[in-house]
C-alpha cells in the first residue's frame, strides 16, 4: 500500500514536471529579453555598445545570474548596490563583467 502511494506520488511529480517543462517550451513571456541579448553580446565584445545596449545586457546578466536563485528585488541606491553586488560576486561567483553590468543595470 505504501509503495503504491509512493509510486502514485512519483507519477504525479513527474507529470507536473513534464507539464511545467512543456509550459516552459511553449511560453513566450520572456522572449523579448532573451532575444535582445544576442545583439548586446556582440556589442559588448566589440566594446562599442551604447547605454541602452549596456542596460539590456545588464538586465540579461541579472536575470541569468541573480534570477536563478531569487526574485528580482527593487533597485537600491548606488552605494548600497555596490556593496550588495560585491557580496553576490563572492556568494554567486559572478564574473567581473557580470558584476559591472549588473551594478550598472541596478543603479539606473
Amino acid at each position: 500500500m505504501t509503495a503504491r502511494r509512493y509510486v502514485t506520488c512519483g507519477i504525479l511529480t513527474l507529470a507536473m514536471a513534464l507539464f511545467l517543462t512543456a509550459g516552459a517550451l511553449a511560453g513566450n513571456d520572456r522572449s523579448g529579453t532573451a532575444n535582445a541579448p544576442a545583439t548586446a553580446t556582440t556589442a559588448a565584445a566589440s566594446g562599442k555598445q551604447d547605454e541602452a545596449a549596456l542596460r539590456i545586457e545588464g538586465e540579461r546578466r541579472f536575470r541569468a545570474n541573480c534570477g536563478r536563485c531569487h526574485q528580482a528585488p527593487h533597485k537600491f541606491p548606488p552605494r548600497m548596490m555596490a556593496t550588495i553586488i560585491r557580496h553576490m560576486r563572492v556568494r554567486a561567483t559572478l564574473t567581473d563583467e557580470d558584476m559591472r553590468l549588473i551594478l550598472q543595470y541596478m543603479t539606473q
Binding site: 517543462t21 511560453g27 522572449s31 532573451a34 534570477g67 536563478r68
Partner: peptide, 12 residues
C-alpha cells in the same frame, strides 16, 4: 543541475 528557461518563469 539548474535550468531556468529564458522563455518562461520556470525554475528547475
Amino acid at each position: 543541475f539548474e535550468w531556468q528557461p529564458p522563455s518562461t518563469s520556470l525554475d528547475l
